[in-house]
Design a protein around this nucleic acid. Sequence first.
RNA 1: GGGCGAUUAGCUCAGGGGGAGAGCGCUUGCUUCACACGCAAGAGGUCGCAGGUUCAAGACCUGCAUCGCCCACCA
Length: 856
Amino acid sequence: MRGNNTLWVPGTDHAGIATQNVVEKQLQLEGATRETIGRARFVQRVWEWKAESGSTIIEQLKRLGASCDWTRLRFTMDEGLSRAVREVFVRLYQEGLIYRGKRLINWCPRCLTALSDIEVQHEDVSGKLYYIEYPLANDQKKRLTIATTRPETMLGDTAVAVHPEDPRYNSLIGHRVLLPLTRREIPIVGDSVLVDREFGTGAVKITPAHDFNDFEAGLRHHLPRVALFDHHARMDPAGLQEAQVAEDVRQHLAGQTTDGARAMVVEALKKAGLLQKIEDHPMALGKCYRCKTVVEPYLSPQWFVKIQPLAEPAIKAVESGQIRMIPEQWTNNYLGWMREIKDWCISRQIWWGHQIPAWYCKHCNESAIVISSAKTYTISSEAKPLVSLQAPTHCPDCGQHDFIRDPDVLDTWFSSALWPFSTLGWPDDTPELKKYYPTSTLVTGFDILFFWVARMIMMGLKFMGQIPFRDVYIHALVRDAEGQKMSKSKGNVIDPLTIMDKYGTDALRFTLAAMASPGRDIKLSEERIEGYRNFANKLWNAARFIQMNLQAPHEGGVEITPRDAAMDAERSVVDHWILSRLNRCIGEVNFFLEAYRFDEAANRLYHFIWHEYCDWYLELVKPALFDKEGSGAAGTRTMLVATFDTLLRLVHPFMPFITEEIWQAMPHAGESLMIATYPAPQAALHNERSEQEVESIQKVVSTVRDIRGVQGIPPSRKLDAVIDIADNEITKHLQTHRLLIMTLAGLTQLTIGKELPSPPLAATAAMVFSEGRIGQLFINLTGIIDLDKETARINKRLHELTVQMEQTQKKLSNPEFVAKVPPDVLEKTRAKHQEFLLERDKLDAQRKRLQPGAAT
RNA sequence: GGGCGAUUAGCUCAGGGGGAGAGCGCUUGCUUCACACGCAAGAGGUCGCAGGUUCAAGACCUGCAUCGCCCACCA
């Protein structure tokens, strides 16, 4: 599990994500700032983690070719991945696709870092909407009322916007208003993008330094940006001065938090008679995912990737079908997001990650570098960076040697984006790169479709010149049994380790596969897992049964080959039947796996193994197996081992542990099931005739069991039966397998023939064999029969038949149906109707015989 | 506000034009020699509502209701 609820498939992770997640998770950096986290604590947590998981972060990183310098609280991966990251950064910078600029970003004033979209969690709150009156500059009695949820930012307004087609206001465009509490006049502009005429008063303040939309609007109208808050989100005296805030207000505001400032501004506006009203206004507030502090849009120098030139080829790759999203519905999400993509802020002010390969000459940038303490410094947007793979030796401008490195690190998704090729040795032209790029399938969760998948596509196309993968399989999200999103704060996370302890890893894995219907989330319920635990047990017991019936520990072959004449003669009907059925199952499972329908594949396997292989095959095989004198035992044992071996291979991807365990204990060829060939269907194994033949056996056995069940006859009570059927072929089948049927159905006597028994025996049933052939079964229940129960059973079936016949009759008597329906459907409907008729007649006749006095 | 999905048996869910399905749960009967984490039989559903297309709709179309998710935003 990763994040809140995404199932993380092992093997798709990479160093960048592992680093961030492991470190963040283990350190529980709840609100900790760079300054407060000590090395001791860090190292301690690393070792705690080792105790839990058996390997350390260091070991993991070393495996990935990294080296760590713990003393600096910042690790760099000098080989491998880090080299690729620097290479990409430098190339993009040289092409002008990476730039450093002062722009508005989401900022956590507690962690003191830029946050990506995924790191901002929105929370519904009950906010207020404040209506503030701005006096017109040329006539202060006239006022323009705006509505805002953040009155404290009004001091940084640099314009007011109205809709250019709004007759209420558009004559005011070009006029100016006095910004209350300040000595500034600001213009009224017309902006159809920003302004929603229906909202509030239809007039809106523009604060480019504290709101994303306003920032954009500010660019459109060339407005100045007045920043009021510092990086702690406190009122900055310099900002207040720049905003020309009235002296008395300014003194109180300096150093205030946003909340404190809000109260003061509202109070001051009230006093000035400029606060019209306050309304309740539910809204969503962005919070830092780590420390839950309210996120502040903050104007600061950051690094950005100019994304448009990278996005266009990535859009085409998906539009043209070069890259396929599965399920397809995600394609639109991807395209929609990509078409409206915004420049990507890649700098972070945290202390782990890949440090940005940029340096500043201290001499040339003296005024731009602000040293605030021994360890922290900020570099303003005016500074001129030197971007290169290695630290520069001298400044190209002044020739001096004193540099300071950009303290920022890269967004973890920056290195993640390079994963498809950086892990294979890029920028070197390695054999691995040649062999594994592009790869076939990426398995991932939709919540990182944009953060990761889209960026891998962009970077792959940019630096490798071709797509990184062909298929993107987007798996389901796991929810709890109530359908709630799993979340650490809610405490409803189902810990996979607990589940695995209780039910087994295979059971959990199989459950997830079986429930992974495309486009739907998974509500994980323990009952379902328990069901598949039972399935694992079933598999185990089937193996036990086979093993204990082998004569030598390694008896039996494992290869199923298409029949040749010699083999054909040796194989029994049951052999041919199970091979045919198994082959069918293999075909279906393969088909569904190729279509990414893991749920269907898992369900087919479950049903086949439990309800055909175990319920029927293992039972059908017993008479031959236990008949030590008979000739069929050895062949049957061979078939058991061969078919079960194939089944284990089929199930192995769904239940790797138990299948490997069983496989090793059975006669087998090869080292491990993991590397054994996966079964493929073989057309020659298909055997329609034997499938029909065994179906006849099953039909008779089921019918006897049916009567037993309804009459409540225990299995220990043996019965006599007579089958009446006017079909030579089926009669022949049944004759051949007479003993088998008797065993399975618990009969002492079975007569097969066309002759009705005389006197008629009490319990009967009609049996419909394949292709509409019908027979009748009589069971001697003298002294056992409950006439009422038997009549009720027949009546129930008669009722079902009547309902079904009404339906077919209605269709067949509809001229339009007969005229328009496809011939095969018409034929099928007619045949079905005939079947119903026959069965009804047989049952009807029998019901009459059951009437008191009818039987002799 | 835009988009997506869901609504089918008591529960969890498959099924996407031609006789309503699975697992779990429930009822009944089984100390059947692989398995009671089992075997056999069974009960249980006008497939959210209303229209439409069709010879035929649980399935396709339109609208509505309820629930959920994603994106944007709520000045």
